[in-house]
Design a protein around this nucleic acid. Structure first.
Lengths: 200, 200
DNA sequence: GTTTTTTGTAAACGCCTGTTGACTTCTACC
DNA sequence: GGTAGAAGTCAACAGGCGTTTACAAAAAAC
């Protein structure tokens, strides 16, 4: 049975979204970011992304060229670390800790996308470079000497470790909501790195 | 040209390994552990594992049933954390930090296999459970109150974060060999969790 | 020495993936 | 109102995956 589309549509046929290239592109990107962040690159299929965006896989390719290019577009957003890097260095540990212990962590976070790309040979190097350029280096500049880059990497490692057991391998101990004691300990550790490392 | 096999073999024909089921099984397990640890579950193919073990993919299935069962067998080994959990609580932070900053980290480490399984829907829950049972719980028992499980999870998160940027997403700052300052800071942080968390 | 069991290989199967090309359908312009 | 082009769908392709089946060869049992 042929379905009439317009202007007198049958009720059983779901209303097709008005054709708007810009909005469709944005919708694809939104779906891709969400799925890349929650399932990882390899496990987020083009068909699944297309279905989440309400369109066809072929259209995803037409808009973004390939899956890898879609991934590139998906991580072309700010990592969202800038708000923490203000002049107030004394409380930044607490702010970062609270942000990364907030529940739930923003699903389509760029950091989640990049961390979930670990171990995927197709995008691993890309994620590594981007984490270096977008997180480590700005963080290192903000931290300043001594050992700015090493301290920045260590700070990101602490943040990523907590992310790992809240999002990727959800542990019972981390699942019970924001634990004040955990958060404060995390804050202290971050602050410790911010203030500088002890000499060996 | 037919190749003679035995007892007078031509030099050009590589010597086939003598048929030894037990050794073949061990060889498969060794190859699987190495590839699961370095490439992750999804990206370690049966053909690749079989090739690394010097046999045929069909034989891997005959020995272990399926890829998932092979993974189960691959993680059925000690995590290697026990040596650190001795009576000397004052220096455990330093020992653990030195171990996880040692270069290179053991490739086929069970911890690497489990952490690399993050985000893979096929084995993620399994890895989570095993990390709980084999790492968090023993660690929590050893740490003792207060908040034993939360502190154990936080400790594992710190260790895993450094693992992430040394193995999975190799960062330049972590690649330059054991950094004494980094290691000592890591040791201090671990020790801090071992000694107990500050009250909020 | 023959037969049976174990140990291994080769080729294929069904499924899923990213991607492509041919084809509709809606929209905007002349 | 007719038409060019954008927006979207559909079915198929090539390739990789884990797995299976059929078969060969070595070792062991009789």
């Amino acid at each position: 049975m042929a379905q009439r589309k317009s202007p007198f549509r049958l009720c059983s046929a779901p209303a097709p979204r008005p054709r708007d290239a810009e909005q469709t592109r944005a919708e694809i990107l939104r779906a891709a970011r969400l799925l890349f962040a929650t399932r990882g690159y390899a496990n987020a299929g083009m068909r699944e992304i297309a279905r989440a965006a309400g369109i066809t896989p072929a259209l995803v390719v037409r808009y973004f060229g390939s899956k890898r290019d879609l991934f590139l577009a998906a991580i072309e957003t700010d990592i969202g670390l800038a708000p923490f890097l203000g002049p107030d260095r004394a409380t930044v540990g607490r702010h970062i800790a609270r942000y990364f212990f907030s529940k739930p962590l923003r699903d389509a976070d760029t950091l989640s996308i990049l961390l979930h790309a670990a171990g995927d040979p197709e995008v691993r190097d890309l994620a590594t470079e981007l984490l270096n350029a977008r997180v480590i280096q700005p963080l290192a500049r903000w931290l300043g000497p001594p050992r700015a880059e090493a301290r920045a990497a260590l700070l990101l490692a602490i943040i990523s470790g907590t992310w790992l057991f809240r999002q990727a391998l959800p542990m019972r101990a981390f699942a019970g909501g924001p634990d004040a004691a955990l958060a404060s300990c995390l804050a202290a550790q971050i602050q410790h790195v911010v203030d500088g490392l002890p000499e060996p």
